[in-house]
Amino acid sequence: VRLVQFQKNTDEPMGITLKMNELNHCIVARIMHGGMIHRQGTLHVGDEIREINGISVANQTVEQLQKMLREMRGSITFKIVP
């Protein structure tokens, strides 16, 4: 398990697509080339996201998580399992 932190201070999309796997874990499905996450190089396709800013992603839908990420500003921390 590791923590990945980055800054999001604009309306620029993060450039990641999330999916739920068969165990209902949140997985990074795709990283858009040239997007914020791609430029930082901190997340990778297949990484499992456990928490966003200390909030568990368990029992949340992809749509709920994407909305939460769109609305966040400032420092964002993901707890991930590579």
Rank of each mutant, 00 (worst) to 15 (best):
H25M: 12
E48L: 05
I49V: 13
K79F: 02
V45W: 02
P13C: 14
T77G: 04
T61I: 02
K19C: 07
H44F: 06
M36L: 14
I55N: 06
D11I: 06
I31C: 03
K67Y: 09
D47C: 02
F78P: 00
V62T: 13
M36S: 15
A58L: 09
D11A: 11
Q40T: 08
G41S: 07
V81T: 08
G46W: 00
G54N: 05
F78W: 02
L65K: 00
K67E: 14
H44M: 11
M32S: 15
I80H: 02
V1K: 10
T10V: 06
G74V: 01
H44E: 14
G15M: 02
K8M: 07
E22Y: 14
Q5V: 15
D47W: 00
I31Q: 00
S56W: 04
V4T: 04
L43W: 02
G41A: 08
I31V: 09
L23S: 15
G41N: 08
I49P: 01
K79C: 09
M72K: 08
F78R: 01
H44L: 06
R2Q: 08
L69I: 08
L3G: 03
R70N: 11
T42C: 11
G74C: 02
I52M: 02
Q40I: 09
P82N: 09
R73P: 03
M72V: 12
I49E: 00
I27D: 00
M14R: 01
D47T: 01
V62W: 05
M32V: 14
P82F: 03
T61V: 03
H25Y: 07
N24K: 11
M20K: 15
G74Q: 03
Q60C: 12
T42P: 03
I49W: 00
E71S: 12
L3T: 15
K79N: 07
G74D: 06
N21E: 06
P82T: 10
K79H: 13
I49C: 01
R30A: 14
V4M: 06
G54L: 02
D47G: 01
M68N: 12
L23K: 13
A29C: 04
E51N: 01
N21I: 05
G34L: 04
Q7I: 15
V62Y: 05
M36A: 15
N9I: 12
R30E: 14
K67G: 12
G74F: 02
K67H: 15
P82A: 12
T42H: 09
V1Q: 05
S75T: 14
D11T: 15
P13E: 06
V57L: 06
I16H: 00
Q7R: 11
K79Y: 03
K19H: 12
G46T: 00
N21C: 05
R73F: 06
Q66S: 12
H33A: 14
M20D: 02
M72E: 08
I16Y: 02
D47P: 00
M20Q: 09
T77V: 07
